[in-house]
Amino acid sequence: MKIRVRYRDNRRELKRGTARWFGISVTMLSMAAVALLSALLTIRIAIHASEVEVPNVAGLTVDEASDKTHDAQLNLTVENRFYSTTVPAGRVLSQLPAPGTSVRKGWHMRITESMGPQRATIPDTIGMDQRDAAAAIRRASMELGTVAHLPAPGPADVVLAQTPPPNAEGVDKPEVSLLVSQPFANAPRAYVMPNLVGLSFSVARARMKEMNLPLWAIVPQSAPAAVPAASPDGAVVGDAAPAPAPVVIAGPIASQVPVAGARVTAADNPHVTMTKGYSAPAPAATPTPALPGTPLPTLTQPAAPVVRVPPAQH
């Protein structure tokens, strides 16, 4: 018995299916691109529809500028007032943003109002109390500007200087700033730390003394060696006892704290580290005289600066 197997050629159907899906994909991508482009155009139109052009209000009165900005759907704020010899009082001296700028609806325009030529006389408040000075400035139809403080001897809250000065002319803004005294703080007086590296201790201490500041020094030195202890009859007995420390003759300054140029006070405990020069022999201990009436040797101090270690910081 023979079995016949028949093969079906479906390559054409596969090609038609692939072409159909490709067409569907291209159509969907085209629709997505069109939708994205439409959304972008809609957003752009919406943004530009909410923008307005800034009108020119320079030279107008404040009321006229307010009406013009209201018609343009903008807000108006008078930010400053300045004297002017060219623009009459009550009119707009300048504006921000500039005319023709595109801004969103409801944007706040800031203008400067002209006060015309200066007519007010700058009051003299130097030497007054701060409150009295502020009252004098307001009586002159002016504004109190910045109030700065400076430590000074004498009573506090006294006007030391003012800007603009009394009776000044050609002032731009009707505002007076004051410099007021305040008592000295309890903090120690500060100085600029000089450069002491390379100097001897005596010269460095003299420079610091000119600023009424102390100066401590640290000198590197080795530990004293131990020597045997002797009995009254000269025999060596017991454990070894430390020998007297040698006197260290300091060299020039190697480093300093604080560094040169830093702010320094007596509370900062300024000190320097010396380079180790050489060690002079230590004064010998007074020997026990062998015979009654033998004179004792005379001990001399080395001719070297006194070297002290600064106290520990707490």
Rank of each mutant, 00 (worst) to 15 (best):
Val259Ala: 15
Ala89Val: 06
Pro214Ile: 04
Pro283Leu: 07
Met28Pro: 00
Ser38Glu: 00
Gly23Glu: 08
Gly261Arg: 08
Met274Lys: 02
Val247Lys: 00
Gln256Leu: 11
Val54Asp: 03
Asp129Phe: 05
Ser202Ile: 13
Ala98Gly: 08
Lys173Gly: 00
Ala152Cys: 02
Ala58Asn: 15
Ala280Trp: 08
Leu160Met: 14
Ala280Glu: 13
Lys68Tyr: 01
Gly145Ile: 05
Gly261Leu: 11
Leu60Gln: 13
Pro165Phe: 01
Pro166Val: 00
Arg8Lys: 12
Ile249Tyr: 00
Ser84Gln: 06
Glu13Thr: 10
Pro228Lys: 08
Pro88Met: 05
Leu299Ala: 10
Gln301Pro: 09
Arg12Tyr: 11
Met109Lys: 02
Phe22Ala: 15
Ser38Arg: 02
Gly100Ile: 07
Thr27Leu: 14
Val203Thr: 14
Ala226Lys: 07
Asp172Cys: 00
Val237Phe: 08
Ile249Met: 03
Tyr7Ile: 14
Pro123Asp: 07
Ser177Met: 04
Gly100Leu: 08
Leu291Gly: 02
Ala303Arg: 10
Lys15Glu: 13
Val248Ala: 11
Ser50Arg: 11
Val92Thr: 07
Pro153Asn: 12
Ala204Thr: 04
Glu53Lys: 10
Pro295Trp: 03
Ala32Pro: 00
Ala190His: 08
Asn167Phe: 01
Met193Ser: 06
Val248Lys: 01
Ala254Lys: 12
Val227Phe: 04
Gln182Trp: 01
Arg104Tyr: 09
Leu36Asn: 03
Tyr191Asp: 14
Val307Asn: 02
Arg131Ser: 15
Lys15Val: 14
Ala285Asp: 12
Val26Trp: 06
Thr275Glu: 14
Asn195Asp: 15
Ala39Asn: 05
Lys105Phe: 04
Ser177Ala: 14
Ile126Glu: 08
Gly59Val: 04
Asp239Arg: 07
Glu175Met: 12
Ala245Lys: 04
Ala230Trp: 02
Arg104Asn: 10
Thr101Met: 09
Arg110Lys: 12
Met1Trp: 06
Arg11Ser: 15
Pro270Trp: 03
Val272Thr: 03
Val92Phe: 06
Arg11Lys: 12
Ile218Thr: 13
Val247Asn: 02
Ile137Val: 15
Ala136Thr: 08
Val192Trp: 05
